[in-house]
Design a protein around this nucleic acid. Structure first.
Lengths: 105, 105
DNA sequence: TCATTATTTCGAATATTCTAGAAATATAGT
DNA sequence: ACTATATTTCTAGAATATTCGAAATAATGA
């Protein structure tokens, strides 16, 4: 992943509402959740939620697919893993932990 | 790490300039770099750079210590690791990769 | 004290994001 | 066609972030 894409993903996940949305979708697994289900969990007005979800979709972190009347949102695990890989390799590498753990690693 | 702290860190790292600053500091290792050295790498006006660094310091991602005339900036590897752990556990868990890799991981 | 270097703080302009009500669109059932 | 449900798009105000020149602060040395 390139640094600009990483910054974009981090920026989108850097909003508390959006991070909660994304976490909720991850917990839901690959099948994800309809927008309405997310709204029930988060207690945010529909238009505000839609706005935040569209940010996540724009960054490629979430995909949407219509299923009848509901719009199902699914997290992109591969992109998220790529982001974590970027952070690990580019922003956390080359230094050993100050006090290496033996059983918690 | 709690979700609000994670969001805060992600937000701060979600700016391209700040992400570059942080990555540069990580590459420099535990001794970090003086502000001036960062500026030479990034080509950003001093006041703008200072502003961005203060964001990182406020979030706890960077620490500053004066050394004579220069201010040395060091990345907080432990906090960054905690953030990565949060993302891995809370935002990427419970699902196996679609096509597990055996030698490219 | 004066000059120099390193960096921050101030201030103000510009840009972007957030929020949410109202209206619009999409789907399904009658 | 009409109604109900699900969600988005429109719109606009408020809040926050970004940028950077100018001035201020901090440290060093002559």
């Amino acid at each position: 992943m390139e640094i600009l894409q990483a910054a974009r993903c981090l920026d989108k996940l850097g909003n508390p509402t959006r991070l909660e949305v994304f976490r909720l979708l991850v917990k839901a697994g690959r099948e994800g959740l309809p927008v309405g289900d997310i709204q029930e969990h988060l207690d945010v007005p529909a238009s505000t939620l839609s706005h935040h979800i569209s940010h996540l979709v724009n960054a490629g972190l979430v995909h949407q697919e219509r299923e009848g009347r509901v719009l199902r949102c699914r997290p992109d695990f591969e992109l998220m893993q790529a982001l974590i890989d970027f952070m690990t390799e580019e922003c956390c590498e080359g230094v050993e932990p100050a006090q290496p753990k033996r059983d918690a690693g």
